[in-house]
Design a protein around this nucleic acid. Sequence first.
DNA 1: TAAATAGTGTCTATCAGACATTATCTG
DNA 2: CAGATAATGTCTGATAGACACTATTTA
Lengths: 228, 228
Amino acid sequence: MADIDHTLLPICSVDGVLLTIEDETLKVLLHLRPNAPCEGMWALPGGFVHKNEDNSLQAAMARVLKAKVKIPGLYLEQLASYGGPNRDPRGWSVSVAHLGVFARKALPLKAESEDIKLFPVSRLPKCAFDHRTIIKDAVKRLRGKGAYSVLPTKFLGDTFTLYEACKVYEHVLGEEIAPGNFRRKILALDVLEPTGEMSVGGRKRPAELYRLKSPKEAVVFDRGVGSL
Amino acid sequence: MADIDHTLLPICSVDGVLLTIEDETLKVLLHLRPNAPCEGMWALPGGFVHKNEDNSLQAAMARVLKAKVKIPGLYLEQLASYGGPNRDPRGWSVSVAHLGVFARKALPLKAESEDIKLFPVSRLPKCAFDHRTIIKDAVKRLRGKGAYSVLPTKFLGDTFTLYEACKVYEHVLGEEIAPGNFRRKILALDVLEPTGEMSVGGRKRPAELYRLKSPKEAVVFDRGVGSL
DNA sequence: TAAATAGTGTCTATCAGACATTATCTG
DNA sequence: CAGATAATGTCTGATAGACACTATTTA
């Protein structure tokens, strides 16, 4: 077995761009860094890979997030990796960034505090490292993939009405969608199934509740869902 | 500045899945590993990030490739990162994989030798590490992105006829495309421009040569290019 | 001229998107 | 009832895909 000079290795971490929709606005979860480097700046939740604990990059990301902010039902996928000599003052570093999508109501109220906050992606604070770039890339991925996959439904709970889904797609794609057309198209794609239950407590007429057929994956379709 | 315990860091490397089309077949470039680990097995060209030489992950990939196989006009984009405790016998490792696409004729003849060969992606040899998985993912990306971008044209030289482009899209998508429809659609997308030159030495009627309008990027369109 | 590609035209089923209509709930 | 959403129906323009046709080259 070859011997590795560990002083030559770059730093390796995982970071998560956790997105949700609150007040009709796409927001990202950031935390205030308590320690150097970048102490007192807002940053993506992240941390080093732990060789003795983690079995994969995704597992490392999940462990880090579980420690900082517990979000039940969080959807995670790998986004991209960022590396360079200057992005972290501690030296040459690689960050494997992940895109997370969750329903606002899945975030425990106590999670939001002085040092953990949701920021609109269009009004980001000064961010640590190159996290602003990573967030921009994550939003780009979300919008790009949004029109062609069920990814936006991850902003909703386990069950949702078609009207709620339509509104979420509108916020992701940034354009109005005719609810009638949306209903026809999303049902034709055959990725949702009715639960049999009806929405309760809605302000108006109750609607059928639907759920994803394959809740774990973010199914991609051939055609879009848009409709100006 | 915080101090880093370098013995805790995973190994970090870059690997390239370099694809081309030869004899109407999608092939990947592999090299025979001369040293441990996995000595004598076929592997993706790759290597460690060099902290004092590389300014980014893409730069590291380019440097490694330039040393192992010079391919003028090679198109490179990041694919995904793979990490885990067992994929490399030397320990917990991260590989930032890249997808490369090149024209067969751009590969110097001397490059292909005993220890560097092209293999059909459908008939891979026993591969080192998890490189087989990475190759499969790269092909999946190529096929997925192929129908909606100019990525397949990177298999061609700087200039090409529409018929050649049509054939390349056929090989990437794995289905026949009506040349007439392909012509109409690819021209309507406004991503190509005529050079004014005509193809020479072709077996039949000469055709107009086209080139990419933005040769550096892999433009993505809204609609597909397919046509059974 | 036969074969193959270059290049253009045409037809049709399908679908995206616009919009209308009816139904059903709450306040 | 008024207002809002639920759910379905209808119409039209655009286009993907099939296919026919002519043109131009080489063998």
